[in-house]
Amino acid sequence: MTYHQLADEAKPPLAPVRQLTLRFSGTRRGARLARRLAVQQFTEWTGLPYDSDPARAVALVTAELASNAVRHGSLPGRDFRLAVLLLPDRFRVEVTDTRPERLPPPVTPEPVDEASGRGLLLVQAHADSWGCTIRDTYTKTVWAEV
């Protein structure tokens, strides 16, 4: 499991076999719909059952990234974007929000006594790799690969 703060420009990304991108409202309902859509596309594209371990990992990773975009990365009246990509050897979830100045904090394995704050630890546990990419001054994309 790796974390990359910025995109590794030296390594060209694999061309997606399939890709879907949609915008969702920056609300809890939008985050829930994004999770459901990601799992639906994953099961459709891979043929794996909805209750398989990889589908559950996609659901958890998408739920965390989308809820973080709503909670920490949204501005009033701004949507977030979900992109799901089926690559030759993995499934990639990308969530783009409108707060590039708010980067995800480094994940530490120490227990947190707070009621929240463990989402990225879960992403790290269920994703093969994850990170954050800033391509312009208006948005950031947090991604994870399962």
Rank of each mutant, 00 (worst) to 15 (best):
W130N: 05
A63S: 14
L82T: 02
R35F: 03
R135K: 09
R32M: 04
A10D: 11
R18Y: 15
A69H: 03
D79L: 01
D51L: 12
Q124N: 11
T2A: 15
P106C: 05
A63Y: 06
A115E: 02
D136T: 08
S67K: 05
T62V: 08
T27S: 15
A34C: 09
P49W: 14
G73W: 00
D79I: 00
R71C: 03
R71Y: 05
L103M: 11
E9D: 09
L20Q: 12
G131V: 02
A38T: 13
S25R: 15
E94D: 10
A7V: 07
V17D: 06
T2D: 13
T46V: 09
Q5W: 12
Q124I: 00
L122N: 01
L48N: 09
D113Q: 09
R29M: 09
S67M: 11
R32F: 06
R99K: 07
D53A: 11
D51E: 14
Q19M: 12
P49N: 10
Y138H: 09
T98M: 01
P54A: 15
R18F: 15
L121W: 06
A63W: 02
P76I: 07
V107K: 00
F80H: 00
G131E: 04
H4A: 12
S129G: 11
T2L: 13
L22I: 09
R56P: 03
E64Y: 02
V84K: 00
R90M: 08
E114K: 01
A66N: 04
V70R: 02
R18A: 11
L75Q: 08
R81G: 00
D89S: 13
A38F: 15
C132L: 05
Y138N: 07
Q5L: 11
D8P: 03
D128L: 12
E64A: 01
T21G: 13
A144K: 02
N68I: 03
R56N: 10
R36C: 07
L121Q: 11
D53L: 11
Q40W: 09
R135M: 05
A144I: 00
A83P: 01
R90D: 10
A10K: 15
R118E: 02
E44N: 14
K11A: 04
R90F: 09
V112M: 07
P111D: 02
Y50N: 09
G26A: 12
L33N: 03
L48H: 11
A59V: 08
L122W: 02
S25D: 13
G117C: 09
F91L: 13
V146M: 08
A63E: 04
N68S: 06
P105W: 12
V107C: 03
P76A: 14
R56K: 09
R78S: 08
L75G: 05
T21W: 08
T98A: 01
V84P: 02
P100A: 11
L48Y: 13
